[in-house]
Amino acid sequence: MATYKFRVNGNPATVDSWDPEQPLLYVLRNSLGLHGAKFGCGLGQCGACTVLVDGKAVRSCLTPVKQVAGRAVTTLEGLGTPEKPDVVQAAFIAEQASQCGYCTNGMIMTAKALLAQTPHPTLEQVKTGMAGNLCRCGTHTRILNAVMRVAKA
């Protein structure tokens, strides 16, 4: 059983994994109790499992735990809380940009990385930037409104 050290939401984390190929998603959810990132496909096709690694949006379902050793991981929980949401979370709440909400993690984390790179994207840039994230409920309009609310701020 190997041990991996990295930072999660600003705090040091040490986890054991019997398999260095174990995807980060299961380490976050089962070892660290962080359920923000969701299992959607395990194939990197839907974006529900998105987290930030050193500020970049990655698919935690395809990222082996060994690859994040020494890195800084940010999950949805690391952005803010219901009482004190981060600016992107606050925009999603204000727009009620969620139905079932299963994709919401990936939407917010992808938007977070997008806005960090391009603080004031156009609507077309946001659509392109979010193209890898699926929403089945069809909440696209509100998700776009939420991201544009931050983009225009």
């Binding site: 969701k38 709440i93 940009a97 917010i108």
Partner: peptide
Amino acid sequence: VLRTEVPGKCTGKHVYLQD
């Protein structure tokens, strides 16, 4: 009326069956 579960869904606090 705002749906009160939305803040939890946007912050990882909402407990889904999967969680």
